[in-house]
Design a protein around this nucleic acid. Structure first.
Lengths: 272, 272
DNA sequence: CGGAGCGTTGATGAAAATCAAGCTGTGTGG
DNA sequence: CCACACAGCTTGATTTTCATCAACGCTCCG
């Protein structure tokens, strides 16, 4: 598709402009190739396959809250996040949204559905200014059939996702909201946490804009309950939180909440 | 491992007994091969691979409530259910069990973890008198590497499971218990339902022993709540249920409950 | 300055867990 | 063959958790 595009463009511009664009394109190609090399899933694929993929993929830039794909639309392309963050969510019939996960650079999104040819089971939204690499399902299929070890890696990655999904099911079925929220926050800290030192104290900042609503959709509750719990945590010095930001102050104690080894003071006072 | 076992046995028996056992073994081999052919995952694998697998796999018989493998133990073997039903469950730290699913003949169990070399994330228990086929992780890995299309089928199967897991997450996060229970029952009906005609009325019997506790673990609730809801459904003629059995009388109306198109009379009266 | 979007907090009520007690069918051992 | 123990089930009462409703505060931005 790209070459054809070039021919069309060439008709309307002089040789210098064409060459400038061409070198920009080559540069983009080069960057794309470079990006592909960072993707763990493709880490040990042979070079010629990466070249092939780079030629057949396109970058797409999303601004905050922009939708990458909608729930139920046919999954003709798979994406790899290159920078920023996206989240996957499913709408319920009664209008709520449930978040299925947050994806960070070099993670695939919609890869599995593109492989098996199912429609996207949820919508994908940029949480931030984000760039993704779009690869057609056909390219993915061809590359995979040419390089079977890649399938094994896909299986491993899917296993990790399935494990996380099972963890969430277990939590949602058996655990209280405060604990679930603690796990959500810790999981996010693992993905996008940045360690900071302030006054000799070590803190973990969640490096993305994160509203109460977002957290509620991840924890399976309402923004009100999230707000109350975060206020409690704030009061007991566990976190520092405010409008769309969250910093974990005492990670160890938050783990205790997540594991329910010691309920917070406030959880107890709220319940008394 | 089998041949060695034979040599040992042979030492302690006469030729006739040996030959009888040998033919029994060959017969079992044959049955195993036949069983393998019924497994959709292996449906279009070449014959010699099936032979290989048949030689390297063993059948195992489980009686009701027997544990096939424990949560956290290393997944050195994958299983295929041949008859009966098993369920997968995870224990929570505070002693509850959450069911991850019910598996019926020709479905794989523990296949993924065997492939990726992770420990079993949950325990597997026979719900009924059950036979399974045990295949070592090593055999699976070898066969898969010899026949890449098999990996693609594994990916498709995983996708189905991941989709179901996501559905459950959405339900648990956003839906009321009655609706979730209705979905659980309908899902079971799809898997193990037997259509029956009684007095001209069509019913679907859930063909497995199924306690309130089992249902509660599948729906993410308590046996008390399950009992109350089933009593309500019974009163309104939706189902016929009793000690470890469940028959759907008006499947269509149960779907309405699952989709929350029309709440049952009793759900409304309970709430008033 | 005013509105939109996000967050907090109190009050209330509904859903479902928990506590408690008793029932019933099934299998078992005397 | 009966009694009895037990596992599964039912149901009422109470309590807890959390969603919902409602109101208001803060802050950013046009």
């Amino acid at each position: 598709m790209w070459p054809r595009c070039f021919i069309v463009l060439r008709g309307g511009m002089n040789a210098i402009a064409y060459n400038r664009l061409r070198s920009a394109w080559l540069c983009t190609q080069d960057m794309t190739l470079n990006a592909l090399r960072h993707i763990p899933l493709l880490a040990d694929a042979p070079a010629h396959l990466l070249d092939e993929l780079a030629r057949e993929s396109r970058q797409r830039v999303l601004s905050r809250n922009e939708i990458l794909f909608a729930q139920g639309s046919p999954a003709l392309t798979a994406y790899f996040v290159l920078s920023g963050r996206v989240r996957l969510m499913q709408h319920t019939t009664d209008g709520q949204d449930v978040a299925m996960g947050v994806f960070v650079p070099y993670e695939p999104v919609g890869l599995l559905v593109a492989i098996v040819g199912a429609p996207y089971p949820g919508a994908c939204e940029a949480l931030d200014h984000t760039t993704v690499l779009a690869v057609s399902a056909a390219s993915i299929a061809r590359v995979m059939s040419q390089h079977p070890p890649l399938m094994l890696k896909v299986i491993k990655m899917m296993h990790a996702r399935l494990t996380e999904a099972n963890d969430r099911i277990r939590e949602l079925a058996a655990e209280r909201v405060e604990r679930r929220l603690a796990r959500v926050v810790l999981r996010l800290a693992n993905k996008v946490g940045v360690k900071e030192e302030v006054n000799g104290a070590s803190r973990i900042r969640i490096d993305m804009p994160l509203s109460r609503q977002n957290l509620a959709e991840l924890a399976g509750t309402t923004l009100h309950t999230v707000s109350r719990i975060l206020s409690d945590w704030q009061r007991s010095g566990l976190v520092d939180t405010g409008r769309e930001h969250l910093v974990i102050l005492r990670a160890h104690d938050l783990v205790l909440v997540a594991e329910d080894i010691a309920p917070t003071e406030d959880a107890r006072s709220r319940s008394s």
